[in-house]
């Protein structure tokens, strides 16, 4: 397990490099090497979705990707979603529709929701949203307001 390897990738628009072990996960690289602590770890079996980020435009659970496998990749985390001070429409929708309580699952939820829109378009019915959120667990909200937020965020993305 000893020995580190150099890795470089683009994270939130910036080129970053680091020395990581073969076993270092992308989420560990983000949190521990880059101090991007907005990406959370809620489990150890890739079930909860708290660590969801975008890897080359696709939503992935960053606990299920090795950092070394992301050489030259383009990674976007919750910290990179807003355009400067202007929130992403999905972030705005989560606030407006009270789609969060403790906020721990929220970064993963929002990243997953944006990915859902990218895959399914802006018109998301309730069933599609609920199905797609199967890989993101929330314990606070009963999902009610998260589903409303995702639908509203998707509609807002269309107009943005």
């Amino acid at each position: 397990m000893s020995g580190t390897h150099k890795v470089s990738m683009t994270v939130n628009g910036k080129t970053v490099t680091g020395n990581v072990e073969g076993r270092t996960l992308l989420v560990q690289f983000l949190r521990e090497h880059l101090q991007l602590t907005g990406t959370h770890v809620g489990c150890d079996t890739s079930q909860c979705g708290c660590c969801t980020v975008h890897l080359n435009g696709n939503g992935v659970k960053s606990c299920a990707v090795l950092a070394l496998a992301c050489e030259d990749a383009n990674v976007v985390t919750i910290e990179g979603l807003a355009n400067g001070d202007k929130l992403h429409p999905m972030q705005e929708a989560f606030r407006e529709h009270h789609g969060l309580q403790c906020g721990y699952c929220t970064p993963g939820m929002i990243m997953s929701a944006v990915d859902m829109v990218n895959r399914n378009g802006f018109e998301l019915d309730e069933k599609t949203v609920r199905k797609h959120l199967e890989g993101n667990i929330c314990r606070c909200t009963g999902y009610h307001n998260i589903v409303l937020a995702v639908q509203a965020g998707a509609a807002a993305m269309k107009n943005s």
Partner: peptide
């Protein structure tokens, strides 16, 4: 009223114990 705490939580700037 929409929540004060949300801005940091939706932008990844919350500070939880492991942070």
């Amino acid at each position: 009223v929409r929540r004060k705490e949300d801005l940091r939580l939706i932008t990844g700037k919350g500070r939880f114990s492991d942070d």
